[in-house]
Amino acid sequence: MKVKVLLFGAEERSVGRPSVDVEVADSPRASDVLNALCKRWPELKRARLAVNHAFVPGDQTIGAKDEVALIGMVSGG
């Protein structure tokens, strides 16, 4: 299945666009999506995955309607 991943900050600038689609097996875990991302863009490996606006562990299953975002180093304040 195709998972759309939102990008922000340094990750967005590094990839050059605000979101990317990654192809993974059906009912993927968060770690599957991260691995697929890092295979294409190794510089993203330090980022964490958020699903539906919350950080998730690597074994969290991702559904087709979930909002998936890659959260790298943040810099608020």
Binding site: K4, L6, F8, G9, A10, E12, R13, R17, P18, S19, A50, E67, A69, I71, V74, S75, G76, G77
Partner: peptide
């Protein structure tokens, strides 16, 4: 999840600002 990007003043009079706009997210 908050990020900041600097917008620097032009180094020469009339020069361009060094700026990185964040792209618009449709998500």
């Amino acid at each position: 999840p908050i990020w900041k990007q600097p917008i620097f003043a032009p180094t020469k009079p009339g020069g361009r600002r060094s700026r990185s706009n964040f792209e618009k997210h449709d998500g």
